[in-house]
Nucleic acid binder design. Structure first.
Length: 184
DNA sequence: CGTGTTTGACCAGCGC
DNA sequence: GCGCTGGTCAAACACG
């Protein structure tokens, strides 16, 4: 099993959220995935994994991404297979909750939509995307919360095997943007 | 014409 | 076994 380096922000920024304003994410709404969130309007960041563990934010919000990196791949094969033989290997998933008017955040990668499904208890459909880069099998799901339609949940599955196609601002710039947006 | 979206069909897992 | 739900496929379509 190989752990590709997580290419989310820090040195080689790949995130370029077009309408960045991350906020709290109730993890029980999306199940067994790791959750990255930042508190709206502040510079604190939290990272949730499983249902109850909260990592303490580090200065300037970098901590969350660093934690993501440290957990990359750590949950593979974690759940018990219901049958004896090895079951599907689930890639680790990371969810971002973003307050945004648009569903699809520009994270610097090229995505192809391959499905859309109505979701139970949610009047908004969930969209499924795959990274179009050759050999990269990263997927993401985008879903708007029913109880707060201003919030978009983006769930990433897998890790990109290539750098972003859109070199961009550094992470600090993104955080600054988040500040601006959150002050609305 | 290449690329991306839409959408119905299909399949697998899970709970009852 | 059956029905529900989530996830994926693929043909048709739209667009630059």
């Amino acid at each position: 099993m190989e752990n590709y380096p997580l290419r989310f922000p820090s040195q080689q920024p790949s995130a370029s959220f077009s309408t960045p304003c991350l906020s709290l994410l109730p993890t029980d709404m999306i199940g067994d995935i790791q959750v990255f969130d930042t508190l709206q309007g502040g510079n604190s960041a939290g990272f949730l994994r499983s249902k109850d563990e909260v990592e303490v934010p580090t200065s300037q919000g970098y901590g969350a991404y660093q934690l993501m990196e440290s957990f990359a791949g750590s949950r593979e094969n974690e759940e018990k297979p219901s049958k004896k033989k090895e079951k599907k290997v689930k890639k680790p998933r990371y969810a971002f909750q973003t307050r945004s008017h648009v569903d699809v955040l520009d994270d610097g990668y090229r995505w192809r939509k391959y499905g859309q499904k109505a979701v139970k208890n949610n009047r908004f459909p969930r969209s499924y995307y795959k990274c179009t880069h050759q050999g990269c099998s990263v997927k993401k799901q985008v879903q708007r919360l029913s109880r707060d339609e201003g919030i978009v949940v983006t769930t990433y599955e897998g890790v990109h095997t290539h750098p972003t196609e859109k070199p961009h601002d550094n992470f600090q710039d993104i955080l600054n943007q988040m500040q601006i947006y959150s002050n609305f």
